[in-house]
Every structure is written in C-alpha cells, then in structure tokens.
Design a protein around this nucleic acid. Sequence first.
DNA 1: TCCGAATGCCAC
DNA 2: AAACGTGGCATTCGGA
Length: 546
Amino acid sequence: MLIVLARVAGDRIMAARRTDESASFGIEYVKDLPSFVAAEERATPRWVWDDTSHWYPQLLAARVRVDRCYDLRLCHAILRNSELTSGSALATGAASSWDAPRVPDRPASGALFELEGDEPRVDADPVAELVLQREAVARSAQPGRIDRLLAAESAGALIAAELEYAGLPWDAARHEEILADLLGPRPPEGERPAALRELLEQVQQLLEAPGLNPDSPVDLLRALGRVGLQVTSTRSWELKQLKHPAIGPLLEYKKLARLLSANGWNWLDTWVRDGRFRPGYVPGGVVTGRWAANGGGALQLPRQIRGAVIADPGWKLVVADASQLEPRILAAMSGDRGMVQAGAAGDLYAGIVASGAVETRDQAKVAMLGAMYGATTGESGRLMPRLERAYPKAIALVEEAARAGERGEIVTTRLGRSSPRGQGAGYDEVASESEVSRARNRARAWGRFTRNFVVQGSAAEWALCWMASIRRRLHAMADGTWLTDAPHLVFFLHDEIVVHCPAELTDTVSEQVRLAAVEAGQLLFGAIPAEFPVTVAVVDNYGQAK
DNA sequence: TCCGAATGCCAC
DNA sequence: AAACGTGGCATTCGGA
C-alpha cells in the first residue's frame, strides 16, 4: 500500500491512498498528522512525500517512526539524470519544481524568514509526479536496479532524519578537557588561548616579525621570505620541508589553531546540546550519491576529539566500518576474479601482495587508490602497469570510465545513478595552442571525475543498502521499544556506522551489522562471490575505535 | 559593510 | 613526496 501525503490549499494535509498498482487513489484529509501516520503505520504502507526532511522530523518528535518511504525529490533527481531512464517522459520533459534545489525546512518561527512571504506552502502535485516516476522505472531496461536505488535512497532519507533526532552521544565535559589539555583554559571571547599565545610569541620572535598573524597566509609568507625561507604556499606539508627554528612552533600553532576554530568552544556551544551532537546530514547531497553535511561538520569529525563521543551509562558504541570498500566495489563491479580472490581472505591489500602484483601492502594501497583517482605520476603512477597486468578487468573498468568522461559521455553506477552531463571535451580547430591544452586538461580532469564517480557512487549505494539493512534489523530487535530506547544508529560516515547500544546487546548488534554487509553485497551484485568484510569494535568512546 | 574568491585542513 | 577523487568549514582579503 502507498499513502501519498501532501500539503494542499488552506494549509490542509491530504492523504492519497492506493492499495495496489491497479487501483486508483482514494483521497482523504488528515487532521492530526502524527496520530494518522501512527495508526496507518500498523499496515506498513510506503509513505510517499515530496521531501523526507519536511515530514519526518515532526513525526519523530511525536515519537512516530515509519518503516518505509519514497522521497519524491531525491528519486526525481536520480531518475531525471539516469542513463537507465533517459527516454522517459520524466527525463525528457521540461524542468519543473521537482528539479529545484533542496529547500531547507523553515524554522518553526524565525523573524529572518517572515519577510520571505509566509503563506502556507502548497506542494506540487505529488501523485502526478509519482505516476511519472513509476512509469520511468517501468520502462527502464533495468527496473530492478533502479528501483533498488530509489528504495535505498529513500531509506537513507529516513535514516538521516533519525540520526538527527537521536543525535550522537557527546560528552561536553570530556570535550572541554581535551581542549584544556591542548589549548589551555577557555579564554575570554576574542582572545587566543594560552597555548596559542605562547606559540605565537615564539614564532614572532624566531621570525623577527612582532606583528605577524600566522592565520594570514599572505602575512606569513612575507615573514618567511624575510628570513630567507622560499616557499610558494604556507601549507603544512610544504613548511615541513623547511629547516628553521620557527617551523616547529609554527606547525604546532597551525595544528592547534585548526582545532580551536573547527571544534573548539564555539563549536561545542553551537552544536552540542543535552549530551548530543546533532549535525545536519544531506542525503544525496554529493553528485556521486554520497551524503553531504550542512552544519556541524559531521563528515569531518577529527580523530583528535572523537574521545568525546561517549556512550550513555550502561550503553556501548558499536563502531563498524567496511574494510577497503571502494576497491572491493571495483572488483565486484568489474567481475575481476583475481581481485575478488585477493579480497577473499580478509585484507584486500595483503591479497594483492600475495598475488605477486606488488611487493608491499603500502604499494598495493597506493596503487589501488591511484587507479581509482587517476594518478599518473609518483609511486602510484609507476605501479599502475603492474596492477593492470595483474587485474586487467578491474583496471579496464576505471580506464573506460575515464575515457568516457574525456569524450564528454556520462557514466553510471552499479544501481543506476549517472554522472552529470559534463564538460564537453571539444575545442575548435582554430583554437590556439594554449586553448587546446587547456581544453585537454579540462577533459582529463573530467575523466578523473567520471573514473572516480563509478566507484565512489557504487560504494555509496552499497553503504546505503548496508545501513538500510542495519536499520531494519535493529528495528526488528527493538520489539516495539522506541527508537532511542533500543539499539539505534547514531553516526554515518561514507563507509562507517556507529550504533548506540545497551551493553548486553552488543554481540547481537555486531552480528546483525555483519549480516547486513553480506546482504548489501547481494543487493548490489547478486551471486558474485565478492566479500564485504566489516571491522567491528565495541567501545565506550569513539576514540577507542581504530 | 557585505559578499565571493582564495587558502588551508579536516573527513572518507 | 605532494598530485590524484568527493566534500564542509573557518578565516583572510579585496572589490563592490
């Protein structure tokens, strides 16, 4: 059963229900959304709505969870662009409001937004859009794959809302300790903490630059130049090459200044409330299908402060990451038996060494990353021919993706997400030499993008399937207990998840997380015997994992 | 004074 | 050693 929800004129909510494919929609109006959804959810319908982030948070706030949904905006973006649905009316029609960029939900009351016109929002007709989308899927050459992707993408939207609802357990006191240890006590607003002040004085003295602000690259570059240090930038790795007494304290300053500005006291005040860090997640926010973040920097949580992520008393964190996910995805997608075999024993990179393709694990890793990113120089570039000889099908897949991109063609992930229509490679015949070379560079850069797109995007699909399966399994374990009173997901980072879990359930949860990884592999690749092992750590704080 | 580009570093 | 993909975010700096 499907139930489509929409806001209609007069700020009313309409529900259009369809019990099976052949039936027509029955319309009703909803008085109280949470109680309506809670009642209907007993029959586990698929809820269809324009944008999960506009509907689900208020349901969760009322302690109403839903099992399945269909996010029209996210699915539209996939179908509109996918090679697998390129002939559909949805793909060929004029752009509509469904193509508009995501609109962040309006805060309940915000003076800033009142000016923008506060008439109630009326949704574009979601039933018509749903019909168009289903038609596009039905006419696709690969309806199974694309449907799987739409389901996974929609499940991801539910998970993102639940992650934000639950929040990541965060011990503000522990965070403050970490800051105090490294930076000194919290300084008054606008002043540098003690550790930074001391380092700054040293740097200023050693460079004989009393007024120097190391946070200003221009200023710093000038000061370094005055003592004879020739550098083209002030990046840390470049400064590390230099020999001068000021470099040590300068690098230390930069490290601590980064901690202060990115995850210091201001960050703590802004993003942590009541023992939870609640960042913004944006499912489908990256072209490849990865999630993006907006607010809080969830996807760049530095290792330095992960020790502040502490499970509640009596609870644990189950931290799981998919080992060498992208190369394994490449192996499975290309059907490269040798590379699949190399990953069968556990450590894919060790398997590559064992096959004799390269000498060390580090070489295997660098070479694989280079193959997926398009490295041409350095050690990675030098190892490529050997990798290609050992794993011809895997390397051919990324090489073909790169060539397609260079020709201006689109490429597509395992389940059917296509790259944006690119940067044409063309240049005209009368173009000057520099124009030709610029065009060639642009084409090559786009080729590196499409090369990476197929692997990164397919890995993102695997991760969505994995996480959706984990969510389903955790819900089954919960046996009616509310989301956050039972084991629940609290963090997601591309190929890694964290489950907040009562201590006595960690074994079961770990097992379910592993089973979910097997299931994800089957969802993407069917019977291909590719392994997707996960490393699971049961810890009290996130800093203890890995 | 506001805003976008440039810079640099964090995550995968 | 520093070129090789996807991002977010804080800070500086120069132009409107």
